[in-house]
Design a protein around this nucleic acid. Sequence first.
DNA 1: CTAGACAGGTCAGGAAACCT
DNA 2: AGGTTTCCTGACCTGTCTAG
Length: 425
Amino acid sequence: MLSDQELAQYVESLVQHTAAQGGTGISADAVVRQLGAQLGVDLSPKAQLIRSVLVALLGPAAAPAPDPTGSRKDPFDPATAAAAGGPRAETPPQQMHFSTAAASSAPAPSPAVPHFFPQQHQHQMQYFLSAPQQYQHQQQQQRAGASPSPFDIPASYRYGHQPLPQADQAQLQRLVQLQHQQQQLAAAARVAAAAAPTPGESPRAPEPPPAPAPAASKKNSSASVGAKRKGGPGGLNKVCGVSPELQAIVGEPAMARTEIVKQLWAYIRRNNLQDPNNKRKIICNDELRLVFETDSTDMFQMNKLLSKHIRPLESKNDSKPEAKKLKPQGDEPISSVETDVNQLPLMVSDALATFFGTGEREMVHSEAVKRVWDHIKSNDLEDPENPTVILCDSKLKQLFGRESLTAHGVSELLSDHLYTQSTNI
DNA sequence: CTAGACAGGTCAGGAAACCT
DNA sequence: AGGTTTCCTGACCTGTCTAG
């Protein structure tokens, strides 16, 4: 079963691939044949749709000057339509020939893959960038053997042991942008697919549920996008950034919220962290304690606590950033700001620097907490009678100036030893 | 009267226990 | 067996209000 939307995306990928290979043009007929062979289905009934997608991608379009950023919205710029040799209305759909110049003029985005991507996955990443839908399709086919994701980032970066180099940050951002562009292009193709309702003749290819063609009674514009919000890339399925503490548990730097919750529950079961008497209760181990900042929680509170460790990948600088959310009554601190601060490297006090003994003078708060816990753990400093109490050894005494502290207090006390540059001065 | 702007409501997935 | 409980974000839908 291949939906029109998926087909549109496959067509888009093929066009990009052709352009990337140096191809100068492509016909709807060729697309029907190539894609049909590739997918193992007869796409001739879909020729009309394919033509519409090609028109949307290359037809009344092409860029005047290649966008230095490699943005692929260029093909939609009407300025170069003529130059690109757009299709003529009289030509039979299948034989229409579309120049891929537009697609190639906006150079097929093959940005440098950040070096932290394992060598063996660089090719995969390039493949993904040039043909995301095909790549995803291939991945689904190979689902059985769970090979490591090409997006895996070495643990040293993931857990903040090592700051991500500036250049890589920029590249990572670029990758996110590219993915966003892919989505936009796919959305455009979707619109084209929806707008290709077969002028006179019946589409005769309504496979699954007989597409309610007479649904023209519907509203209009926005209604036509009635692809139903069902597991799309947005909303709950939006990939969000994961805090270093949570990464240690779920294992990925970016996941959909639903996936994070799933992985978290898997971790809880794996480590037998549910209270046997009340399975709703979660008993935190060291890693979980870093995330939830408590010794135990329940499954309902868990989601709330989790939200502190999940944040959008892209900054909301565009569109309608604060339109809705913004109700800063001034009373409560804005948590997003708070969590952002948690991600900033802070200045380390002399005492703390001495405690670490590594000479590091900058550190993310969470990393400092983690290291202190490592010390507590490795020196067995938890009170055997009450694990929530930490019995300070000489080093901890020197750092915190007390004989004991609560597990809760570690993070709080560390705050006294970490400060921003501005507060330092 | 129509079109646009805006606000508020709904729904989506995921977990496990408990109640009917 | 099925509904309810908790919590999150954002797309989408519906209803209301305002301006032209």
